[in-house]
């Protein structure tokens, strides 16, 4: 039982990170109907930015409270990834909007390749380890919960609450939902569609940056190719939850997190990714639009 709860907590931590990335996928998909393949690499850029900021802070200040350091890392990473995603949208996706459906998918894959190789070229191909930032571990009834995990879950909850408010209660969120429903009509009603889409990309990137920072803090290492696997897992999570659905993305993220930690704990750590992908395939056989996705109406 203790072991199970322990795994549950590990899964929750992992799932939170996946969920944060998955939101970026699902939001972009919802609003312009494309898979932003470069999103995983945006996450990696976020983690790298956090790493560099961490090193700058370490060089500038002799000792800095961890909370402030983390906050600064997060904010800088958010700003930087927002800028990246904004630029990418403007350069690679916007000119292709409304054209051939596969064209933006290919530019997205191209951007993903370019971004990860850009980081490889500029920062080198080796693993980048950082000294542990937070190392406190609490022991509650035989279950060890590290402060890192608590931070990750808390940050995720706060961000999701903020995000929920933004999407559901503000005029910006209303504009986004309108664009998602019918972009042409939204434009006719005076919504600046380009701006709304840009903001969507920025929001997705900011969440990915937070996920990147948390990832760096949790694992203490990052490498240029780290965008791919978490990116694909988060994309899997978004699809599992029903792409286009925000609660679905979070749910999918948590599910993938749980599947991975449980599978590693009880079966074999080698096949944890196989398990996650297989469950995705099985779920989609029975629910072709994911768990919370709107079933596609086949209009005859």
């Amino acid at each position: 039982m203790q072991y199970f709860v322990q795994q549950l907590i590990n899964g929750l931590t992992l799932g939170s990170i996946y969920g944060l990335i998955a939101i970026g996928y699902t939001m972009v998909y919802g609003i312009i109907g494309m898979i932003n393949f470069a999103h995983g690499d945006i996450f990696m850029i976020g983690a790298f930015a956090a790493l560099i900021v961490f090193l700058i802070l370490g060089a500038l200040f002799y000792s800095l409270p961890v909370v402030i350091a983390l906050l600064v890392m997060m904010i800088v990473a958010m700003l930087l990834t927002s800028m990246y995603n904004w630029t990418i949208e403007k350069v690679a996706y916007r000119p292709l909007r409304g054209s051939f459906r596969l064209a933006p998918l290919i530019t997205a894959i191209g951007m993903s390749i370019a971004l990860s190789n850009f980081v490889q070229v500029t920062q080198g191909p080796r693993n980048k380890p950082v000294p542990p930032m937070v190392s406190k571990v609490y022991n509650i009834a035989g279950i060890s919960v590290s402060l890192k995990q608590i931070i990750i879950v808390l940050v995720t909850i706060v961000l999701l609450a903020l995000f929920w408010y933004l999407v559901n209660k503000t005029s910006l969120g209303r504009a986004q939902r309108a664009c998602e429903q019918d972009r042409k009509m939204a434009a006719l009603l005076g919504i600046d569609v380009d701006r709304t889409i840009s903001i969507t990309f920025i929001m997705g990137a900011a969440l990915a940056a937070v996920a990147g920072t948390l990832f760096l803090m949790y694992y203490g290492v990052v490498v240029f190719s780290d965008g791919f696997t978490p990116g694909v897992k988060a994309f899997t999570a978004a699809v599992l939850g029903g792409i286009g659905s925000l609660p679905g993305a979070v749910l999918g993220g948590l599910m993938i997190g749980f599947i991975e930690s449980m599978w590693s704990a009880y079966f074999s750590i080698d096949y944890k990714d196989v398990a996650a992908f297989s469950i995705l395939a099985i779920v989609l056989i029975f629910l072709p639009s994911g768990i919370l996705g709107r079933p596609e109406v086949e209009k005859v």
């Binding site: 690679a92 000119p95 054209s99 191209g110 951007m111 993903s112 190789n117």
Partner: peptide, 21 residues
Amino acid sequence: ELYRMLLFGMAMVIVMLWKPR
């Protein structure tokens, strides 16, 4: 060689923008 894939990715984007079909 190090720039191979970087340029490959950028070329994918540029060619697609130039000829979306």
